[in-house]
Write a protein that binds this DNA or RNA. Sequence first.
RNA 1: GGCGGCGUACCCAAGUGGUUAAGGGAGAGGUCUGCAAAACCUCGAUGCAGCGGUUCGAAUCCGCUCGCCGCCUCCA
Length: 476
Amino acid sequence: MKPFFIYNTLSRTVEEFVPLKPGVVTLYSCGPTVYLPQHLGNMRTYLCTDTLKRALRLNGYQVRHVMNITDVGHMTSDQDAGEDKIEKTARAEGRSPREVADYYTQLFIRDLEMLRIERPTVPPGQFCRATDHIADMIALIQRILDRGYAYVVGSGVYFDVEKWRGPGAKGRLSRQSLEEQYSEQRLEHASDKRSKHDFALWVLNQPHHLMQWDSPWGRGYPGWHIECSAMSMKYLGETLDIHTGGLDHIPIHHENEIAQSESATGRPFVRYFVHYAFLVGMEGAKISKSSGKFPVLTDLIAAGIDPMAFRLFCLGAKYRSELAFSLDAVRAAQTNFEYFTEFARSMPPDACSAPDSGWTQSYFNRFIDSLNNDLNTPQALAVTLELIGESYRRKDRCVWSTLTKMDSVLGLGMEEIRRQAASQTLPTEIEALRAERDQARQKKDFRRSDELRRELQARGYEVKDTPSGTVLQPRR
RNA sequence: GGCGGCGUACCCAAGUGGUUAAGGGAGAGGUCUGCAAAACCUCGAUGCAGCGGUUCGAAUCCGCUCGCCGCCUCCA
């Protein structure tokens, strides 16, 4: 097994990845809050996690992956007051919070499927909904209380951040002391919590909140961070190998998750934190839900772009680099994707079943080396394209098993594309037109043949006269 | 104010001390072809924001300057 290196936010260096249990990786990724469609920036992070999973699997690991769906209540601000975003959408759309969450969960899963992002593996194929884990959260909060790192007041159960950290200590992820981190705090706290640094584990006495549950401390609902700790530890154990999320989660959300989890268990919570950089828009500005304007996957599809082109676009940049989004850049990826599909479609069947030529081995080695070097997908992609180019140059198509192994990480669905093309059957009237055109060409009746080509094009087929015969390809 | 990051060809983007600065897109040339389309091949930065410095050697390390962005409020 080759060593796999990944950047760990805890150490701020690239480290060799060694799982707690040999051969098995426990992976938790922060999923979406479902009150709006997920924008392309969100999808990039799920694509990054998917690539990480696939790369680990290519390295021989079994990946135990949990992902949550936040379908209840965090606030528009991190304070006690404020509005639950799901409830806000519910009011705006005249639906119940449950309906809103279900609807946007569905949209999210549909987008994942279109992008060929694999589902979590624990529980198999399931996303963990926060509302299905209220009891687990309550139990975890109780453990924190028992350990003395939380307290109960009228407005809720709070985590005692200062006690946990100790005086003047810096955050493990934020690398700032509480004073530094919150020096510019813009919101005032009309709250009965002991310190402005404390965060809610359980919120009480918010009668207007629609989603509430009974708890040992009274009716209420969970705080923002607790679900991730509860669900990850429930399914993966008290110490996780890898925890992923967007860069924005480093100083608050993940910092707090560590505090909650470790105060409850007394053990290290996460061994490697992996954080993804943003997809940015024009002039490098962040795309975000709160900014109001954000492109979604269906916008791309409406613009004639295949979801796989977006996947390829994302693979073209490192997960730790900002990626500049533009329709032109994604169109470039679309063209590049068609280069892949062309290669798959034109695979001779006998070459697919033949063993790969020896020269492919070095390409595969470079491919996996690139991935193992902090998930350098642009380099891995470049190697893949070089393999295809070399296959054309050598006129040697015995590369398919190598290419499909590479595609097990790239996730473009090469084998599916090949199979589909190989088993493509044309509608009878189209087939008749094609046959008639062939005859006309044989008779050198080029007027008729050009007419028939226009007819086929009008019906949505690209006509390609190749040395091995005419090929019709449905136009997208 | 604190913390973090970025600036590589027309566009997207790897490379972070050492042979000719990956790859993709666009563009230019070419092969194939009845024509076309598609496909394939070839070529594209003597230079990496600017200026200094360290070094036998720097896009890569250090300093300064200019420009851009993120987090510190929910956010991937």
